[in-house]
Design a protein around this nucleic acid. Structure first.
Lengths: 161, 161
DNA sequence: AGCTGGGTCATACTTTCGGGTGAATTTAGC
DNA sequence: GCTAAATTCACCCGAAAGTATGACCCAGCT
């Protein structure tokens, strides 16, 4: 838990600590070297440059490894699939765990096929408003905000497909 | 000559001017707001944060992907592997076949994570309108009408994981 | 009979999407 | 240098999605 947090936000944390360290360091030496020579500007400029470099470093750190992490996590997911899913069973377990009703599940499936609410409504012979109600509850139960996320999460949990 | 120099190092110059401007600005207001409240640290921290952001921006400007040609040449090699590769390689072949640009692919990936256009815009440091343009072209190239379908098709084609 | 959960529908409102169009700027390739 | 593709951004507009709230019906349970 805690370790994972550190792992995940290690760069941000490191940045924070660096910032603190630099500030402390600069304050220690400020009286003897900088302010004596009436060079407040140099002091600020130093900080500016330092933190610009830090920003550049941060950016290069944060932008790269994203793809890698995704791939790795997905590999894990796939291993799970192999070990424990004959598809239709986990399906039911997860569905029950989340408290999804049959109707909501139907909507979810059609949603995953990329149908619009209107199309889902026509397919299920209900009104558009009804579909919206279902999707709303669906999002609530799946703890997501958008249909794209709902589909993603549902697939990940093996509720559908 | 001189114009070309400006053209080429426009970002660096802009950075320099920004830095100067911020310093001046901060010095103008420092006496009334900051030092009055005995918050020298806040002053420094503000500068640090500002220039960190500037650094990040600079980095994302300067080290942006210029790899288009490389990718396309590599694609040829990787098509050889296509038969026997499950994830990351088929990726490239299909991407090239559909003519998806790097930026479009980035948008696609974030879209598959269930982010809204606004969130994607913030993540990529571009405007909402730009993201919309990308999604439009994506839908066209993937021959779909909605983002849900785009994500589904992309996953099916192994363009994204 | 009363309560509960699922399903249905509505109205009103806000936000997000997506289409269409045009345009400036960069970059790569010729 | 010129061209083509890529990237960026803007404005408008209509459609779709999503939120909030309330209401009605019905089957099953207590």
């Amino acid at each position: 838990m805690f370790l994972k947090f550190i792992q995940r936000y290690r760069h941000a944390l490191l940045y924070g600590f660096s910032m603190a360290a630099v500030l402390v360091l600069l304050q220690v030496v400020e009286y003897r070297f900088l302010l004596l020579r009436n060079s407040f500007e140099i002091y600020i400029a130093t900080i500016a440059i330092l933190f610009t470099l830090l920003g550049i470093w941060l950016a290069s750190r944060l932008m790269r490894p994203k793809v890698k992490t995704q791939i790795e996590t997905i590999v894990v997911e796939k291993e799970v699939h192999v070990v424990a899913t004959p598809s239709a069973e986990v399906n039911e377990a997860e569905r029950a765990k989340l408290g999804l009703s049959t109707r909501e599940l139907e909507v979810l499936v059609l949603m995953a096929d990329g149908l619009s609410n209107q199309e889902i409504a026509e397919r299920l012979f209900v009104s558009l408003n009804t579909v919206k109600t279902h999707t709303s509850k669906l999002f609530e139960k799946l703890d997501v905000k958008r249909r794209t996320q709902a589909v993603g999460k549902a697939k990940q949990l093996n509720i559908i497909n």
